[in-house]
Amino acid sequence: MFVRAYLRASTAEQDATRARAALDAFAASHGFRIAARYVEHESGTRLVRPELFRLLDDCGPGDVLLVEQVDRLSRLSATDWSKLRSEIEARQVRIVSLDLPTSWNLIATPDDFTARMFAAVNAMMLDVLAAVARKDYDDRRRRQAEGVGRARTAGLYRGRVENTARNASIARSLRDGHSWREIMTGTGCSRTLLAKIARRLKEERINNAVADPGALNGTVRGAK
């Protein structure tokens, strides 16, 4: 059995490795070591997360996916959570979360009957916490939208300030032909931001083609 830790933050500005100390302490207190750690900067509302699925690809039957909280694994809609759960179950991977004590017993269970009992209870609790995590996300988005609406009405809303220096560096890396994985690893940016910058570069190339038809001959790797 291998235990693989998944550490996620929604944006590059957040520290995805913040929970590492808590996961290491949990592992030490339960007498096992973490075989590998997978760090990701993607929203928990996205089903497609490269590092999460790399972790699952690396897992064998009976391996453990360790997270600090269930919301690090999922803020997914009910449909997407069902898809992820099915993928995890098909690979026979066990989810252990620090905020779900019923899952702790999945690391080492004394017999098949007890293992099945803990697995059943854990599956139910995972569904509950995943639903709570999604509701929390939806509630925060709703409150945020209401706050923005009030600020706009009062003429106070200015929007998020773009990190122009970072985005310019990402754009240069795209122009130089670096892969998306290389850029995300090097800068910690999200796939969503990278796609946005790639689209922006493609639009610039198209606009420049009006003055210089040869401009379209250049390519931005990964732009679609």
Rank of each mutant, 00 (worst) to 15 (best):
S173I: 06
R152S: 04
I95D: 12
I197D: 05
A168R: 12
A165E: 15
G155C: 03
D71R: 00
L106M: 13
L106N: 05
L100E: 08
I107W: 06
H178Q: 15
I183E: 07
S86H: 08
V93K: 10
A90S: 14
L194F: 06
D58I: 03
D138R: 00
I197E: 05
V121G: 08
R141D: 08
V161E: 12
K83R: 13
Y137A: 11
R91K: 15
L98C: 06
S179K: 03
R134A: 00
R181P: 01
A198I: 10
I107T: 13
D136Q: 15
R142N: 03
L156C: 05
N163R: 12
V128K: 02
F118E: 09
E51Q: 13
V121L: 11
G149M: 03
N105I: 07
F113H: 14
A108N: 14
R140D: 12
D139W: 00
A115F: 07
A165Y: 06
A119F: 03
R142H: 04
G62I: 06
L56G: 01
R181S: 14
D176L: 11
R134T: 00
G149C: 09
V64H: 05
C189K: 09
A133E: 01
P101S: 15
D111N: 15
E51A: 10
M184V: 15
D80T: 00
G149Y: 05
G159F: 01
M184G: 13
P110G: 12
A120W: 05
H178E: 15
T187W: 04
I170F: 04
A131E: 09
D138H: 00
K135N: 11
P101N: 12
A171G: 08
G60L: 09
M117S: 09
